[in-house]
Write a protein that binds this DNA or RNA. Sequence first.
DNA 1: CCAGATCCTTGTTTCAGATCAAGGCGGCCT
DNA 2: AGGCCGCCTTGATCTGAAACAAGGATCTGG
Lengths: 235, 235
Amino acid sequence: MSTDICALCPVREHALCSCLSDEERVVLAGFCQRRRFTAGETVMWAGDESRICANLQSGVLKVVAATTDGREQIVSLVYPADFVGEPYATETAFTVTALSDAELCTFPRLLFERFLEEHARIENLLLQRTFKALNEARARMLTLARLSAGEKVASLLLEMAAQAGRCRCQLGLSEPVTFDLPMTRGHMADVLGMTIETVSRQLTKLKSAEVIVLSGARTVTIVDGNALKGRTMAA
Amino acid sequence: MSTDICALCPVREHALCSCLSDEERVVLAGFCQRRRFTAGETVMWAGDESRICANLQSGVLKVVAATTDGREQIVSLVYPADFVGEPYATETAFTVTALSDAELCTFPRLLFERFLEEHARIENLLLQRTFKALNEARARMLTLARLSAGEKVASLLLEMAAQAGRCRCQLGLSEPVTFDLPMTRGHMADVLGMTIETVSRQLTKLKSAEVIVLSGARTVTIVDGNALKGRTMAA
DNA sequence: CCAGATCCTTGTTTCAGATCAAGGCGGCCT
DNA sequence: AGGCCGCCTTGATCTGAAACAAGGATCTGG
């Protein structure tokens, strides 16, 4: 009997594989490979052959679309327990890079696809998650195309606060919430389709309006969540 | 023995159900309902209960995200043979509206979900298509956030030409291609995240540069496909 | 064939955000 | 400590696209 590689997995309860029985999980674990990436390292390059899929165990990744002349847009942020990769694609469409140090549980794409086909429950769960990702991408299209700089930054702050609060469990807009931004101003700009300078100015504006407090560049306290929400005009 | 409702289906070979055996298809047809919508009519409203999924048989639909104060963004165009709807969601996230008169083959969501679970092949195909839709959404995020007005219009023209050429089969950028725009300037603006006026000006600019010819507002000839491609700086 | 409603084009003005430019922190290494 | 480097802020200027405005073209139904 082999040791159970999943026993210590930090996202065991939340990743795709949480829907599997112990027996099924052992089969999947049979061809997984854990890999670590340091901040800034790239997990897969757009245009390369699509060889792996993975569950993120820790850290944060960015999925980036780029023009030929070098303009970039972060099209998705990948958090622990999220799935990343492109099953059924021969070629990787977007570059995936670690924003912080990260640990991934990777699977060879073809073996993973076969596993999906033989295990309906996990395939179904992946389908649901993919629909969810699609809805998120579409919601962000509205943000990118139609919100003002101020609205964009307010939205992202609320989103990051929600993400930070996922582990702890925070309620709401009424009480102040403090958390650390998981990314630089530059990355925020890349997510929101704007420049570093504009992001910085909008944060300063929120600070002046006493909606947030910045304690050092990376630590934010949302003082008035309702006011912040009010600066978000997206549905 | 019942008559075969699918026999005359114009997208029989291309819709999701093309992967089914005749027997399976009959089961699915057993709970499908054909519905027609006239141009401008809404198929489903954001926020409503998610009750149906559908295959589009003819016409074009738009999927729209909107802010509370009325700004709108078209997040997807649905063409014949495409799937539309949100399985596994209790609530519809985006409004879907007919851009032209359209015919849909609709299924009650819960029955469709059960059918998916019992027919792995179609579920797998839906998964693949959803990944494809996700990639398209992400590619469009780059367009929305980082391309100039001119680049956006050039990209959309090429995309629409490709879509128009799907039925016929056109090769390339070298020879002139003529087709009818499937939407108004206003809809193009809603897709690209810009205003009607700017779309119009960019088309005029392409016309002046003799890259395209406009014969009436809706008929376009791409005279110099390579030049048009050159004005697209996206990957 | 006319009246009204869309839809489209073009001109002018305005403005939000990009770009250019110049420091100011703060962490990290030697 | 000191110096370097990456990140952040702030200011000044510029510019592309929005907003505003005014017709012209095309379609529709009576």
